[in-house]
Design a binder for these strands. Structure first.
Lengths: 156, 156
DNA sequence: GGTGAAAACCCCTGATC
DNA sequence: GATCAGGGGTTTTCACC
């Protein structure tokens, strides 16, 4: 289990900041929270090494790169055998149209966030990952009409 | 509508790279795709100005900051009146435990990705946003047991 | 329009206190 | 944690295609 007690208030303020803007400078952050630029950088380095910061990435406007459509797909497997679940996991993980894959409790076994260029692209995707899969009992698709809030930021 | 034709192959390669690592240097990227560091930086600047790159952010390990639990919540509204939908939208957007909120077609009206510290935290959240809301007909919650793939990267 | 090369600038890094 | 010096990355300018 990862420890949370390794973070003090400065760390949390830094994390809040870089969660919104990974390009914020040590000097800018330090000026706001009352730390020198070097101290902020030292803490950032530590937070990366500890694995608290897992990645720093660029977010793209899906429409701008031609990925206009998004879908929420709930998948119910035929039976919950470990090898069957793992096989689906791997396939979902490897599929470029799958943005997110969650293994969940409840009626569904998996919930996927999928982005595609258009409807034809989604049909190709669903055939590839869903229809041609004997182990899937059923799946339901919700078409995303509006992405009201999209982020991976976590309250800290 | 945002145009996609403004991107050439160099742009797409750069986008692919920074989607995985926003701290990649212009020199490193340029070496891989056959461009000078300056050219890469020029293109990155343009991609930011065009809004193709909407943000550069740090991703945190939820467990490391004490946000161990995640939920997929499907919400069905009592009736689809624009003002009712907008009110829910705003509330979801403002809630720190709501990572993502999608307005969708199908049985559900909204799908939310929610993270919380623990079950008590989720109960407080659901009371706050869901139970105390006259306009919600019903909602279903799926507890996330494993985050198999989590990202916002888009195929480009 | 685009690029590559070099200088200036800024930021990060490491050593020292 | 702060300060300062050194190295590296980014940004700008410039000449060129």
């Amino acid at each position: 289990m990862t420890e949370e007690l390794l973070l003090d208030d400065f760390d949390r303020q830094i994390l809040r900041r870089v969660q919104a803007d990974a390009r914020a400078t040590g000097e800018g952050i330090g000026a706001d929270i009352g730390l020198s630029a070097a101290a902020v950088q030292r803490r950032l380095k530590r937070l990366r090494q500890l694995g608290v910061i897992t990645a720093e990435i660029a977010l793209l406007d899906p429409a701008a790169v031609g990925q206009a459509m998004a879908f929420v797909v709930s998948v119910e497997m035929e039976r919950e055998r470990a090898d069957v679940l793992d096989a689906f996991r791997r396939a979902a993980r490897a599929d470029p149209n799958v943005q997110q894959c969650y293994y969940v409790t409840g009626a569904a076994d998996f919930v996927l966030m999928v982005t595609t260029r258009d409807m034809a692209d989604f049909e190709a995707f669903s055939r590839r990952l869903l229809f041609d899969n004997e182990n899937i009992r059923r799946f339901t698709t919700n078409v995303v009409m509006a992405r009201d809030k999209v982020g991976l930021a976590v309250p800290v």
